[in-house]
Simulated scan of single mutants.
Amino acid sequence: MLDRLTKARPARPGVSYGAPGDGSSALISLATAVALIALWFLVTGMGWVRPLFLPSPAAVWGKFVLAATEGVSNSTLAQHTLASLGRVLGAFFLALAIAVPVGILMGVNRVIRGLLDPVIEFYRPLPPLAYLPLIIIWLGIGEFPKVFLIFLAIFAPMAIAARAGVRSVSIEQIHAAYAMGASKLQVIFHVILKAALPEIFTGMRIGIGVGWTTLVAAEMVAAHRGLGFMVLNSAEYLASDAVIMGIIVIGILAFAFDLLIRRIERALIPWKGKV
């Protein structure tokens, strides 16, 4: 019995020693969320902060119910949400259709990389509010400028991620494909694109997050409906309960889309992190 307990066993990497960051953090995240909500109840219930600066959870919930039924800022919450979803998703899919091919071309062609890289790297760190006035001057104040502003914010991280994915492809895989008679297009589609998918999905996750953060700036341009417009309009009247309610809704939507992209990534790239 003692011999069996003391007998050496083969070590399995990530199990015996533990891989970096291994294990689920769901319970920790849930506990953190519960603690923050409890602290919110405590701070507002004890009156440590004036309601103007931090309304109670009950006040925010009441505003949520009011927005969902009667509406705030001239529209219901569903109407605001649908307007914002249309702008963010429209810009996201437009960026996905353009930025990923552009990023791949930048990775495989030095001329295209030399032409586009300076432009993307120049405007990428600029806040959307910096070039918002130019977009208004060039495109006016209709619906397209709002979508275009979000598109520009999403385009850069997606293109850079796709380019980085191409540059990370193993050269041995490319040489092996050419040795077996593959054409250049076949190498791009069947070797480079598949190997770059993890980076592309990372760019998609970053892009959708940037799109939601740009939403408020986009809906400053003569909007009459949308979550960002609702937040800005409520702030003008110091309705902090509506502001916080709008922020929570935007955060939940952004988090939901991030989870959706993660699910799609796990389905399409089951080998990620295993090879």
Rank of each mutant, 00 (worst) to 15 (best):
A153T: 14
I141N: 09
D258S: 11
E143W: 00
I98R: 06
A11L: 11
R12N: 08
A156L: 02
W61Q: 00
G246V: 04
L253W: 10
I250M: 12
I28F: 12
G165S: 06
R50E: 09
T69S: 15
L129P: 00
G107F: 04
A176V: 07
S183L: 05
E172N: 07
P55E: 10
S84R: 13
V65A: 08
D22C: 08
S73D: 13
V43Y: 00
V88G: 00
R205L: 01
F151K: 06
I264P: 00
L193D: 08
G209L: 05
V147C: 13
R12D: 08
M204K: 05
A156H: 01
A38Q: 02
G71L: 02
M46S: 10
N74W: 14
K146R: 14
I160G: 02
L215V: 05
A99L: 04
I188R: 10
V275M: 12
I150N: 02
L259T: 05
S24Y: 06
A223S: 15
F257S: 07
P55L: 14
V108E: 03
A179R: 03
F122C: 12
F201R: 13
G18R: 08
R124Y: 14
I37N: 01
F151R: 06
F92K: 04
L77C: 09
L27C: 04
L185A: 10
V88K: 03
P198T: 10
P20Q: 08
P101E: 14
G207R: 01
R263P: 03
L85M: 12
E236P: 02
H175V: 07
P55N: 15
L232W: 03
G103C: 11
P270A: 15
V100A: 06
A217K: 01
Q186V: 06
G21V: 11
L82D: 01
I137M: 13
Q79S: 07
A242M: 07
R50H: 11
V249E: 03
F201M: 09
V34I: 11
I120W: 09
S25I: 14
A177V: 08
M1S: 09
I28H: 05
A195M: 04
L52H: 01
G211L: 11
I137E: 05
K272V: 15
L134T: 13
L89A: 02
Q173S: 14
S84P: 07
I206L: 12
L82Q: 05
A59R: 12
V243L: 10
A11G: 04
I248V: 15
L105G: 06
P198A: 05
G18C: 11
A267N: 05
A267T: 03
L227G: 08
F93E: 09
G90M: 11
